[in-house]
């Protein structure tokens, strides 16, 4: 993808050729690969959106969230609980998920942006664990660890392929929105706070407010991913807000490459493929992921997108927008 750091500055317009290319590749995979491939593609797309939302925080706002799954989980639960507890029709409930996640992001974010660096990360961890624990323990309302199942036909009853196309549309729209945000004046302010908050403050910006805005947008996007995930599987479990998903999202961003718009997307592709295909060869897929992570951090801490591209060609898979 051309969305590298260097041309980020000069080009703020969305390059529709890249979007079209990515969409074409995704559609090719979906329709040539059949139902199985479509499921995999849907999972990758949702994870790409989730990872990109974290990437927005990490690469541009310089905020490392250790509880990002909270907003993914809030999205999933906001949607399912709206249906199960409030009897809202499915068509409307899909909006509840992202909104609940956004409100969660606003509340937790308002607390978290008071801190920086490692203390910020620790507080997001605490907020994430609070969300997870509430979902896990509030049996009467959230169903506890048994989760919520059988409240709707998974994928709105769409076929695997049509749902994959639906997800693709939503994810592309969200990523274009994210691109516009990053390259708007607001995005520029967020990036300058991310690079040097003191200098940004000195030039009249309000770092905490900008960080909170970035945090809320990021939570909103993660909430959309969570809602899509709940629709995709037709269920919601507390694990969606747990440490496992948080670590997954972090690993995806680092795998894909920080400081790059496409980092989250590459990471989601690579990570999901690793998760799917490595176990077919050897059982210890986590070991493989761990070693790859180790290698990446030691060898090329930042400019990973190129390395991921090589990995993709090795695996014989194309990229998505």
């Amino acid at each position: 993808m051309n969305s590298m750091k260097s041309d980020m500055k000069k080009k703020s317009e969305i390059d529709f050729r890249i979007v079209a290319l990515g969409a074409a590749v995704a559609l090719l995979v979906i329709f040539a690969g059949g139902a199985g491939m479509s499921l995999l593609a849907t999972e990758i797309l949702i994870m790409a959106l989730f990872a990109s939302s974290l990437n927005l925080l990490m690469s541009y706002g310089h905020m490392v969230s250790f509880g990002h799954a909270a907003y993914f989980g809030l999205g999933a639960y906001g949607f399912t609980l709206a249906i199960v507890r409030a009897d809202i029709p499915v068509g409307l409930a899909v909006f509840a998920g992202p909104i609940v996640a956004m409100i969660g992001g606003l509340i937790f974010g308002a607390l978290c942006v008071r801190l920086t660096e490692i203390y910020f990360a620790m507080l997001t961890l605490a907020c994430g664990q609070i969300t997870f624990t509430v979902l896990f323990q509030w049996y009467d309302f959230t169903g506890g660890d048994t989760g919520i199942t059988d409240f709707m036909t998974p994928r709105f009853g769409l076929s695997e392929q049509y749902f994959a196309v639906f997800t693709l549309t939503i994810v592309i729209l969200c990523l274009m929105f994210m691109w516009r945000v990053i390259h708007s004046p607001l995005g520029l302010a967020i990036r300058s706070v991310g690079q040097d908050r003191y200098r940004a403050e000195a030039s009249g910006l309000n770092p905490r407010q900008l960080q909170l805005i970035a945090f809320t947008i990021s939570a909103f996007l993660a909430g959309i991913a969570g809602t899509l995930f709940a629709v995709f599987h037709g269920n919601a479990f507390p694990d969606y807000a747990g440490l496992g998903f948080t670590l997954d999202s972090l690993i995806m961003v680092v795998l894909g490459g920080m400081k790059s718009f496409a980092g989250g997307i590459y990471g989601a592709i690579a990570y999901t493929l690793l998760k799917t295909y490595v176990p077919l060869v050897i059982q210890e897929w986590e070991l493989v992921v761990g070693l790859i992570l180790l290698f990446i951090v030691l060898a090329t801490p930042f400019g990973l997108a190129g390395g991921i591209k090589r990995l993709q060609t090795m695996l014989g898979m194309g990229g998505k927008p």
């Binding site: 990360a121 670590l247 680092v254 986590e286 070991l287 761990g290 070693l291 180790l294 951090v297």
Partner: peptide, 11 residues
């Protein structure tokens, strides 16, 4: 540094 130790967790 965090990511490195997370890699160690997996390994």
């Amino acid at each position: 540094q965090l990511i490195i130790t997370i890699a160690l967790v997996f390994i």
